[in-house]
Design a protein around this nucleic acid. Sequence first.
DNA 1: AAAGCACTCAACCGCAATCCC
DNA 2: GGGGATTGCGGTTGAGTGCTT
Length: 486
Amino acid sequence: MAMMMSASGGGGQRKGNNAAVQQGLRKGPWTAAEDAILLEYVTKHGEGNWNSVQKNCGLLRCGKSCRLRWANHLRPNLKKGAFTPEEERLIIQLHAQYGNKWARMATQLPGRTDNEIKNYWNTRTKRRHRSGVPVYPTEFQDKTAVFHHKQRHNEQNNLTHHNNNSKSSSLFSVCPKVPDYAPCFSLAADGLTDFSTPPAGCLKGYCSNNTNIYSSAFSSSNTQKNSNGLAPLSFSPLVSIFDPPPSALPPVTGGGESMPGNFTSFTSLIMGDYDADQQLEPFGFGAVSELPSLQTPPRSASSNATGGGGGGVCLVAEGLDNANSNNNYGDGVNNSGLLDALLMESRTICGKRKADEMEIGVISSAAPAEEEGNGDDAAAAQRTCTAVPFWGACDDEQQQASRDGGGEARDTLVFAHSSAVMEPAKEGTAAVIAEGMSSMDDDLLSLLTNFPSSIPLPEWYRHQRQHEGNNDRSYGGEASPALQGP
DNA sequence: AAAGCACTCAACCGCAATCCC
DNA sequence: GGGGATTGCGGTTGAGTGCTT
């Protein structure tokens, strides 16, 4: 494409008159002659002082245009052509770290320009959206401010490099600095995620050799609770994005060397390429840069918790009767719409999967265990995964725990189908959602505050929390000390 | 074959930061 | 310190191309 769009053709000739045009400066695609002039100038005088190019060489281009042309096309050592898988991986990693800091990312991709990286990223996020991710209502989008707030806070503390202005600030983030791990995600909107180690429970089943790619759902692999009694929460969405039965996908050997299904790269995996024939639909950033749409109608009216209804997911804890909107966390924390919101987000991720392809029964929670051919194990696993009918699975570690003792698994947090939430006709569901939205700041902050404990928290944060005690789970106000850092 | 759409890329714009006088 | 000039950055736009319908 780059070759097709030569300097003398293609490119964006912008409409309208601006100062440059009024000053007799050219706009639009550069010609070879202009390139030659600029090249000669830079060779002779070096970079910088771009406005003098016009004065000294008669090049009818503004300084900005000259600089851009040089930086993006003429400077030496520019690498042209498609990004390599390694570069793709790095971009994903860097974006997870920096957000939309293209220039910063470019410094770590020799020969690549910020513009290239930006275009690359935007194209694929756009593709993600087009793969069926609905646009959220404005009021819900506003809720993302919670994350931005958190991110700003964390930037101040040098905890992350997320861009606080980035539109792509994600509810989910890639955890990149794990050389031998495929990309995983954690609910890292709090920005506290330390990517230097894979979050517990993340990729447990996905990354390691000889483990079932489906074995890790939205789950916690350790049952340690934080100070508020919430189980730590992290997840690999890789389970929930793959529709085919587990047997259809190979195990991942790590490092992106072997991608599941027809994914050919991390990019395709994360950002939306998928093989329609395989009905693989990935989880992607496009799904997370915005919050889920409430406009998307439920696919099914089935209210059976273990069957029927397409695409609905929600968070439940093992042994939890989600239909009653309760949970059994020790401190009695209630959903208050947060889980519904997450549900909706998850549903957004699901996009426009056909409902019948998402039938709960297709992949039962017991499937992984059954595959292992141990009836008792299967039963144990199924107990563990009672509320996980949806592409269902528990982390294999949890399954093992379940086999070994079983008791720990009760804290498992999983994605599960929730017709109770997805069905507006059901008792006050719509109202619940709406209410949940309106009260989401507190709840979301609460959740973000409370998980994942498996991810290292900064010392000052732990210290702060110790002094706040457990009563302050709501950081609704700007004055929240926990959000202000030391 | 034509129209429409999606994709890619280049380039522009506005804004903010930095530099310089 | 103030103000203009310059530079850097991120977001957006639009043309060309190829694919799909």
